[in-house]
Structures are given as C-alpha cells and as structure tokens.
Amino acid sequence: MKLQDKQFASYVVIGLINTLIHGVVFLTFHIGMGISQAYSNLCAFSVAVSFSFYANAHYTFNAKKTWSRYVRFVCFMGLLSFGVGYAGDVYLFPPLITWTVFSAISLVCGFLYSKRVIFRESSP
C-alpha cells in the first residue's frame, strides 16, 4: 500500500470518529437547543476539530503540532463548516442532510488541505 493510501485510510478512520463527535454535538445544538444549522454546525465542528487535528498530525502525517498549523486548519475547516450550515439554513435542508454533506465535503477537502498545505513538509 502506498504512503498516500495509508495516510488516507488513517484520515478516514480519524474522520469517522470526528464525524460521530460532530454529529452528536450538531444534533444536540440544533434539535435539542433550537440553534440554527449554521451555528450548530460551526459549534459541532469546533468541538471535534481539536481531536481531528492532533490525531491526524500524530497518526496520519507524523507531523509537528504547531499553533499556526492548528489555526490554519481550524480557519479553513471552520469556514467550510459554517458555509455548509449556512446553505442548509438558506435551502432548508433537513439537519441530517446538512451534516452528511459537510461530512463528505470535509473528508475530501480536509485531507487534501491537510496533506498539501497544513502538513506538507512532513508528508513525502
């Protein structure tokens, strides 16, 4: 198995755990507390992102964990999270659709952004 395939497999496993964390928080905020999908999605992302960043830095990319990398990762993925949540509000998507769409987009975009921008020095 090529390194990139191993990295992507690790990213997927960590992403599944992250997605579960994200989903529970999103549904709790939106359905349980009546908060909009945009803000619920952003809050859920914020809870799950630290786990994802540190786990991927350590297990997926074997990279140094720095504050600047963390901030860049959080900003990119946070904007993506808010944007998908905002679209869910505007187009009246059911919450499960918003969560599913964000999960799929963040899997692909998050991996590419992490590999090519955030952890590029550590990834051959």
Rank of each mutant, 00 (worst) to 15 (best):
M1N: 06
K2H: 14
K2V: 08
K2S: 15
L3E: 15
D5H: 15
K6I: 11
K6C: 10
F8K: 00
A9M: 15
S10W: 06
S10N: 09
Y11L: 01
Y11N: 01
V12W: 09
V13T: 06
I14Q: 00
G15M: 02
L16K: 03
N18V: 00
N18T: 07
T19N: 12
T19M: 12
I21F: 06
I21S: 10
H22Y: 15
H22F: 13
H22G: 05
G23Y: 01
V24K: 01
V25W: 07
V25D: 05
F26K: 02
L27C: 04
T28L: 05
T28V: 09
F29W: 14
H30N: 13
H30M: 08
I31K: 13
G32L: 08
M33S: 10
G34V: 02
I35L: 10
I35N: 06
I35K: 05
S36N: 12
Y39P: 06
S40H: 03
S40N: 08
N41W: 07
L42Q: 03
L42E: 04
C43F: 14
C43G: 14
V47K: 02
V47F: 04
A48V: 00
V49N: 00
F51V: 00
F51N: 00
S52Y: 01
N56L: 04
N56P: 01
A57K: 04
A57T: 03
A57S: 10
A57R: 02
H58L: 15
H58E: 14
H58A: 15
F61I: 04
F61M: 01
N62P: 04
N62H: 14
K64W: 03
K65P: 06
T66F: 07
T66C: 05
W67G: 12
W67Y: 13
W67V: 15
S68K: 14
S68V: 11
R69S: 12
Y70D: 09
V71A: 03
F73H: 13
V74I: 12
C75F: 15
F76R: 06
F76Q: 06
F76A: 13
F76P: 11
F76I: 06
M77N: 11
M77P: 04
M77Y: 10
L80D: 08
S81Y: 00
F82D: 05
F82S: 09
G85R: 07
G85E: 06
Y86F: 15
A87I: 14
G88S: 09
V90R: 15
L92C: 13
F93Y: 05
P94T: 11
P94M: 12
L96S: 14
L96E: 14
I97R: 03
I97H: 06
T98Y: 02
T98K: 03
T100V: 08
T100P: 01
T100Y: 08
A104L: 11
I105Q: 02
V108M: 01
C109K: 00
G110I: 01
G110R: 02
L112Q: 09
L112W: 13
L112Y: 14
Y113I: 03
Y113C: 05
S114A: 14
K115F: 00
K115V: 01
R116C: 07
V117H: 04
I118E: 02
F119P: 10
S122C: 06
S122D: 12
S123W: 10
S123E: 11
S123H: 09
S123R: 05
S123I: 12
P124S: 10
